[in-house]
Design a protein around this nucleic acid. Sequence first.
DNA 1: TTAGGGTTAG
Length: 741
Amino acid sequence: MAISCTPAINNLPLNRHPTPVSITVNNERYFADHPLLLQLDRCSDSTQLKQIHARMLRIGLFSDPYSASKLIQVAAYSEVSSIQYAQKVFDQIPRPNLYSWNALIRSYASSQEPVNALLIFIKMLHGSDELPNKFTFPFLIKASALLSALSVGKGLHGMVLKSEFGSDLFVLNSLIHFYGECGCFDMAYRVFMSMPKRDVVSWNSMIVGLAQGGYAEESLDLFFRMEGENVRPNDVTMIGVLSACAKNLDLELGRSMHLYIRRNGIKESLVLNNAILDMYVKCGSMEDAKRLFDKMGVKDIISWTTMLVGYTKVGDFSAARSLFDTMPCQDIAAWNALISAYEQNGNPKEALATFNELQLRKEAKPDAVTLVCVLSACAQLGAIDLGGWIHVYINKHGINLNCHLTTALIDMYSKCGDLEKALEVFHSVDNRDVFVWSAMIAGFAMHGRGREAIGLFLKMQEAKVKPNSVTFTNLLSACSHSGLVDSGRGIFNQMESVFGVVPGVQHYACLVDILGRAGNLEEALDVIDNMPISAGASVWGALLGACRLHGNIDIGERACSNLLELEPQNDGAYVLLSNIYAKSGRWDKVSELRKLMRNSGLKKEPGCSLIEVDGNVHEFLVGDNTHPLSKNIYVKLDEIATRLTSVGYVPMKSQLLQLVEEEHVQEQALYLHSEKLAMAFGLISISPSQPIRIVKNLRICGDCHAAAKLISKLYNREIVLRDCYRFHHFKGGSCSCMDYW
DNA sequence: TTAGGGTTAG
């Protein structure tokens, strides 16, 4: 390499500045300390940047590759400018050298669309004489990591090995990070071990990668090994270690790491303090978190949001909300944290109210995360109007349908009863991960379309997407809802042997459900007796449900007693057994159970039905008369009762929880069920062309199911009812569940 | 040139 120093270009109008010096490397001149370049470093707005750019063009400095590349970098990185401007600058360079190509690739690698870094690289290979150097590879590998483009990264790895940079520290560190991001920890570790020399970044890339990829133990092991090899950890190392402690919910180790940071003089930074804060929050210690938060000299919005999440995690929503209100500013992630906390903790209405507030205040713009949370809230409430509005919003604002959003949309449409729309979303996307496939399978399952669920599972295999534990829960539940006993058995048996997914309690519960519903109660009991893991409440619950369906008192009693042993507060268990007794006229046993329930301080969870009309969700409880239109609703109920009786309908009294002597009181009690109130309200307030969509918190009672079938015929209306178990589409006098529920 | 903190789905 030849380096020489020469006086700068003399004819430039630079009299007011000290004489710049150009450096020549390999016959190319660089003006590293030209005053305009120094100005470029200090440049703070786009107008200034454009002025400097213009002057560089005027005085000819732009033709210097170093100077032009510097301009590209500033254009791309400064807050006021954009990658588009950097690209324009690049396009003006007549024959860009490797330095300029690298500057542009680097800019794209850190941009919103890192794929462009790879495209520019291809352009460089085909349209110039330049070959990548040790600087090019880390940028390209970083772009591949951001894109999780495993095959691209592997290809680059191959190129690296064939090049002279096969043992370059920076290149290899990038590869460790890349493989970690793609979840290929064996490859990451292979690169790590093959390195002739490792620095703290090599260790950090492994430690952080493992912690983020869910391998907390391995990450911590590596940290202790690093210490053993006398490599001094830095703040980034500790951020990885804290994240591993948080994943393991290991408060003790987290606390000792906090102490380690103080004792070993690790550079204190805002990011590190936030990571400690996050560890305390995730491990559930708000005392530790608050102590640190109050002591922190510098806080940013991430510190505040972490505290907000902490309060929601311990269930203190009023503290969370008041913290939110006192934050110096609220960005979209802070809003999302609040909305998501409401939605995840059984308060979807508050989630929607907060979303509404966000829109009114216009301080932050909803992003994909917001919409995912709101869609989940809509799904819980069965609020299809708002859910559909969100879908339109996504399209209107050109928001990219990532897998999270696709899944949330499919789930919302499925749970709101519009399976066709869910399918439309499913087919409209190219990118389908295991979440998307599983959500669609769940959609078919809850609508009783078991064969289509299995068909989709086969297509999922063709698409080479590996099913996981949830995929199988959904598939088995599809078999259960459609009475596909042999398919269910077959799928269960293949789970581990063919797909390597070990059956968990949920899968056993589904199998017991499949067998039990089909009447094979003995076989179901046999499955439970031979389970390699202990049968959880869901397994006994499934058996008890099947006993109710088939009126089997003996097995039902056994299931109920096992269930209550595991969950003494399970009111549903009492209700199911009580239904079994009532069905066989054992009213003595019914009142005995009733007494037992009262003595243990248990109350049946009140039935509650939701119905959305014109974007507003209305809620009905049993015997509710609080609705503004209550009077009209009861008039309609009377009319329904008369019309039902006229076609020979007889109320099913076995659905009552206790023996009520007077006939008319029995009938009245059944008419007060929340789903009947919602149906009456739907009939008077929803246009006949629209289906009446209802969401019920418990399983629909047999009497309401029979009544709904008749109502759909008598009033020529489609009723779509979701209970806590599945969907019922009532039309023309019959139900889509074919009475198999 | 490489590594790092808060919010999202089945």
